[in-house]
Amino acid sequence: MDKDYVMRIAGTIREQLVSMTDTAILMSWGIQEFMATIYKDLPGLKFRVNGHLFQGYVLICLNGSDYYEVYLLNEEETRCISDEVCFDELGEIIDRHVESGTDKEEYARFCEQIVSFY
Rank of each mutant, 00 (worst) to 15 (best):
W29I: 02
F47S: 09
F54Y: 01
I31N: 11
P43L: 01
G44N: 03
G51C: 04
F34A: 08
A10F: 09
A10K: 05
T21P: 09
A24R: 12
L45W: 08
V49A: 00
F47D: 04
P43Y: 05
T21E: 06
K46M: 07
I60L: 07
A24M: 10
T23F: 11
E15D: 11
I13R: 05
T23D: 13
L17S: 09
T23A: 15
L53I: 02
G11S: 12
L17M: 15
F54N: 00
T21Q: 06
R14C: 10
G30L: 05
P43E: 04
I31W: 13
K46E: 07
T21F: 08
G11H: 10
V58K: 02
F47C: 07
Q32Y: 09
V18Y: 11
N50C: 11
M27A: 13
M35C: 15
T21D: 05
S28I: 06
G11Y: 06
L26P: 08
G56M: 00
Q32C: 14
H52W: 09
I13G: 06
M27G: 13
T12V: 14
G44M: 01
L26T: 05
E33H: 14
G11K: 09
W29G: 00
E33S: 14
I25Q: 14
F34M: 14
W29V: 00
M27E: 10
Y39H: 08
T12W: 12
G56R: 01
E33P: 12
I31V: 08
T37E: 07
I13Q: 01
I25A: 14
R14P: 05
V49G: 03
D41H: 04
D22N: 06
A24H: 14
S19E: 12
A10N: 08
H52K: 10
T23M: 15
W29Y: 03
A10L: 04
E33A: 13
M20G: 14
T12E: 15
I38G: 03
S19V: 10
G51Y: 03
M35G: 15
G56W: 02
L42D: 03
G56C: 02
L42C: 04
T37G: 06
E33N: 13
M35R: 09
S19H: 09
G30A: 10
G56Y: 00
G44I: 01
G44T: 00
S19D: 14
R14A: 13
